[in-house]
Amino acid sequence: MATEKEMNELLLENVDKDKVRTRKMIGEYIIYYENVVIGGLYDDRLLVKTTKTALEELHRNPLVSPYPNAKEMILIADFTQHENLTDLFKTIKEELKK
């Protein structure tokens, strides 16, 4: 199942579009924060990379695989209810760059 265009548009409405962009790839959307891949929209689900801070902040969120044999990522089930996705994405990017 591919991610719907409307899901991508909803995500972009909830973030700072000057810092966050998406790119459609094989029916899904890869999410970039300042040109660093921090997650994606897979099967209409927001998944972010696992970093120390993301795991601490989202400790109640399940880890799921975006596709068979892929590394698990953190599921953010209702991202419209998350306080500040842009800050979360920035934190993930900074930790990935270390």
Score class of each variant (00 low, 15 high):
1 M>F: 14
1 M>D: 13
2 A>R: 12
4 E>K: 10
4 E>Y: 10
5 K>R: 14
6 E>C: 12
7 M>V: 15
10 L>D: 05
11 L>C: 02
12 L>M: 11
13 E>N: 15
13 E>A: 15
14 N>E: 10
15 V>W: 08
15 V>Y: 04
15 V>C: 05
16 D>T: 03
17 K>T: 01
18 D>F: 03
18 D>W: 03
19 K>D: 03
20 V>W: 06
20 V>R: 02
20 V>K: 01
20 V>F: 01
21 R>F: 09
22 T>G: 01
22 T>Y: 00
23 R>F: 04
24 K>Q: 14
25 M>A: 13
25 M>I: 14
26 I>C: 13
28 E>N: 14
28 E>G: 09
29 Y>M: 04
29 Y>T: 06
29 Y>L: 03
30 I>L: 08
30 I>R: 07
31 I>Q: 00
31 I>P: 10
32 Y>Q: 01
32 Y>E: 02
33 Y>T: 03
34 E>D: 15
35 N>R: 12
36 V>T: 15
37 V>H: 07
38 I>P: 00
39 G>Q: 10
39 G>N: 09
39 G>L: 11
40 G>C: 09
41 L>E: 04
41 L>P: 09
41 L>N: 08
41 L>Y: 03
43 D>W: 13
44 D>Q: 05
44 D>L: 02
45 R>V: 09
45 R>S: 14
45 R>F: 00
46 L>I: 07
46 L>G: 06
47 L>G: 01
48 V>S: 03
49 K>N: 13
49 K>C: 12
49 K>E: 13
50 T>W: 04
51 T>D: 05
51 T>N: 04
53 T>R: 05
55 L>I: 11
56 E>Q: 12
57 E>N: 08
58 L>Y: 09
59 H>M: 10
59 H>R: 15
60 R>K: 13
61 N>F: 10
61 N>C: 15
63 L>T: 08
63 L>G: 05
65 S>R: 11
67 Y>G: 06
68 P>V: 05
68 P>N: 13
68 P>D: 11
69 N>R: 14
70 A>Q: 15
70 A>T: 11
70 A>L: 07
71 K>C: 04
71 K>D: 06
73 M>E: 10
74 I>R: 09
75 L>V: 03
75 L>D: 04
77 A>S: 14
77 A>D: 12
77 A>N: 13
80 T>G: 09
80 T>N: 07
80 T>F: 10
80 T>W: 10
82 H>T: 05
84 N>F: 02
87 D>A: 14
88 L>V: 01
89 F>A: 01
89 F>D: 00
91 T>I: 13
91 T>R: 02
91 T>C: 11
91 T>M: 09
92 I>R: 04
92 I>F: 08
92 I>K: 03
93 K>F: 02
94 E>H: 08
96 L>V: 08
